[in-house]
Nucleic acid binder design. Structure first.
Lengths: 145, 145
DNA sequence: ATCATTGCAAACTGTTTGCATCAAG
DNA sequence: CTTGATGCAAACAGTTTGCAATGAT
């Protein structure tokens, strides 16, 4: 049986609340990519009138708890229910997002390679590199030509 | 002899103006990394009272003309007088930026590898990946511990 | 004389915050 | 009962824009 959202929240040190249940429930339905604004609107359509600031607040909270992942879309932050490692393809024109499995070069992920190389060379302490890619999706390619 | 800034601007299809001369001249002194705000303040200290919006406007203009490069710093756009390919290390704590020569894995740059791989796999048209890295510079590492 | 650039203030976008009210533990 | 979450409006940062005045060609 599925773990209740209440429990899932609890396990991550978060209180239950109705907005939290709605938001987390939405992300858990399947893989989702939503900005604060788009999520706010989607939930409103479903009859959940959360305030926009509540949406922002909870996206941060869920992200901090590790329940969703944040990445930079075109101008706005986007939240992803898929928290396992993968890259994003982000369409410059329509903003749509596609997941891309992690790539390896010579048996190593570019992320690890870059991070290690940079740390060795520079003396900096380097974060996990972000390897999301901007581009144009097939739809927009067709529409443009 | 050095090409005049007036000429350099002209060659790139840009009109001459005093703000443009001051800004481009500043970047040409040596490698610089400046945000709009920091550039505005630096120039003010030197006695050049450009308006902030003029600085914004011209940074965009010079970037569009290919005379400087733009990348995303911590929250704000940063402009780089070094337009040849290289990576950036960006300090999360103090915002300082260090240049990093282009890295190769198995004889290929990760940029090219990633772009090609993504295009093959996805059918998207993919931009040149951005491989700038966030981290903590040695200074801030020392100060923090 | 024409057309781009400047400076200023106002607008805008995405996001955060202060605060009184309300709900969870 | 105590603490944290909500909703609203106001604040905020970075950037862009409208427009009248000015400057470059």
């Amino acid at each position: 049986m599925k773990e209740s959202l209440r429990n899932l929240l609890q396990r991550h040190g978060l209180r239950y609340s109705q907005p939290r249940e709605v938001i987390l429930g939405y992300f858990k339905e399947r893989d989702k990519h939503e900005s604060a604004e788009s999520l706010y609107l989607t939930l409103k359509e479903r009859g959940h009138n959360l305030s926009l600031s509540t949406v922002y607040l909870n996206l941060n909270t869920l992200r901090d708890a590790g329940l969703i992942r944040e990445f930079q879309g075109t101008g706005e932050a986007v939240y992803d229910s898929n928290i396992s490692p993968h890259h994003h393809l982000i369409c410059k024109q329509c903003g749509s997002v596609m997941d891309l499995p992690v790539v390896s070069i010579a048996g190593e992920t570019p992320k690890q390679f870059l991070k290690q190389h940079a740390e060795k060379v520079s003396g900096w302490q380097v974060d996990e590199p972000n390897l999301d890619l901007l581009g144009v999706c097939p739809n927009c390619q067709a529409r443009t030509s």
